[in-house]
Amino acid sequence: MAHVKIYSSDYCPYCHRAKALLRARGVTEWEEINVDGRPEIRQEMARLVGRTSVPQIFIEGRHVGGCDDLHALDACGGLEPLLRGAAAG
């Protein structure tokens, strides 16, 4: 299974929704970076992706976006190949 990294917040319903989708696709572990009370970490995330909202999700180092982006990727059939390590189109 691919390496997944998520910038998240404990209080974010979109973070919980994104993680639920990942679990539904068989992802049982991910690297989670919590931004709660850590403005320097949120700033680092913003420098990486140009966004300050969470979640921000990376799969195998590729930024796939936030919760809505993850769901859109899944809806077009691109999430599972990416999770398996294949190039998503």
Rank of each mutant, 00 (worst) to 15 (best):
N34T: 07
Y14P: 08
E40T: 07
D68W: 00
G26Y: 10
E44A: 12
T52F: 04
D36G: 06
P13A: 13
S8T: 07
E29P: 01
Q43P: 03
A20T: 11
I59D: 09
A24D: 11
D69G: 09
A72D: 14
D68K: 10
M45P: 03
C15D: 06
L73C: 06
G37M: 06
R25A: 14
E60R: 09
L73V: 00
E31G: 12
R84K: 13
A2C: 13
C76P: 00
A24V: 05
D10W: 07
G65C: 10
A72Q: 12
A88L: 08
H71N: 13
D36T: 04
S9V: 02
Q56Y: 01
D69S: 11
G50K: 02
E40L: 12
R84L: 10
V49A: 08
V49G: 10
I33G: 05
R17E: 04
I33D: 04
P81M: 01
E31N: 04
P55E: 05
Y11S: 15
E29H: 05
G78H: 05
C76D: 15
V64K: 02
C76L: 15
S53Y: 02
P13S: 14
R84Y: 08
A75C: 09
A20E: 14
G78N: 10
L79P: 02
A88Q: 12
R84G: 13
R42D: 04
R51M: 05
C12F: 02
V35H: 08
V54E: 04
P81D: 04
D68Q: 07
R51T: 11
L82C: 12
A18G: 15
E44Q: 13
H3M: 13
G37H: 01
L22P: 14
A86N: 13
G50S: 02
Y7G: 05
E29M: 00
G65Y: 01
E60C: 13
Y7S: 12
V4K: 03
L70C: 11
T28F: 06
P81A: 08
S8F: 02
E40W: 06
H16K: 14
E32P: 04
L22F: 05
L79T: 07
I59R: 05
V35M: 10
G85M: 10
L79I: 03
W30K: 08
Y14A: 14
C15Q: 09
H16T: 09
R23T: 11
E44G: 10
S53E: 00
R84H: 15
G78R: 00
V49Q: 07
P81Y: 02
K5D: 07
H71F: 14
S8P: 04
R62A: 15
S9K: 10
R25T: 05
D68A: 12
P13V: 11
G26E: 11
L73W: 01
L21I: 10
I41E: 03
S53A: 07
I33M: 10
A20G: 11
V27I: 06
D69Q: 07
E31P: 00
A87W: 13
G85N: 12
P39R: 08
H71E: 13
L82K: 07
M1S: 15
A24T: 02
I59H: 10
A24F: 08
P13Q: 11
